[in-house]
Amino acid sequence: MFQHQRLFGRAISQVFVVIALALLIAPLAMIVQTSFQGQGPENYVIVISTTPFLRFFLNSLVISAVTVLLVLVCSISSAYAIATLRPRGSRLFMVLILAGMALPGIALIVPLFYVIQALGLLNTYWAVIVPLTAISIPFGALVATNYIRALPVELYEAARIDGASNWTYFVRILIPVARPIIAVITIFTFLAAWNEYTLPLIFIQNTDLQVLTQVPTYFQSQRLVDTPKIFAAGVLISLPIVLAYVLMQRLFREGMSAGAVK
């Protein structure tokens, strides 16, 4: 679009590209560099061997996977009802579901804390999974509804005329057809769950159940703040998600922009 540039314009844009790259890379480079200070690569070994790092990794994985699964089931099925089946009152139900869209999770900590404690769910995966799922559903339901609405009406009508029940259509036709939007919701929800900090901070005090985002705090709670270890932990936590992004760039871009542009 801006490719017919004169030499001067091209030089200016080149300078800006270099500055932008430097500003993006500098903090990342500093983080990696600091993570090797002191004991060098040993820092990484120490992070993995002296903290329950693998345990935290597993906890993050379980919480994220269950959350993604629940969000998918809830958003695709409710979107199907709202966009295709349209029973009486489905508009009202949609409004009810979407009302939570912009809600900061922290605004619910008073009731959550009380209920989770009363039900004996403090220090369980569920204390994180249930609220995380509930606040992730509105976005999933919104993009899934938009997607299903855009499908041709004939798809559903033809299947029904051929004798398929609503359930058969849902399982055999809609879910396979909705694969792109399922991928989008999966990425968006997984990223949010994997990076979640607040809910585990509040509802999980048991070290065995902590998640990855708590690892850097682990090296600050001791008397001595060990900066290189904190940075090594940060790099280790970020690697899987950065790797996933680099390998699936297109999917990530679609996933992250789905709520905004269609």
Binding site: L70, S77, S78, Y80, I82, L96, I97, V130, A141
Partner: peptide, 8 residues
């Protein structure tokens, strides 16, 4: 189909 989302 709305029940799971609504409950949560």
């Amino acid at each position: 189909y709305l029940v799971p989302a609504l409950i949560l």
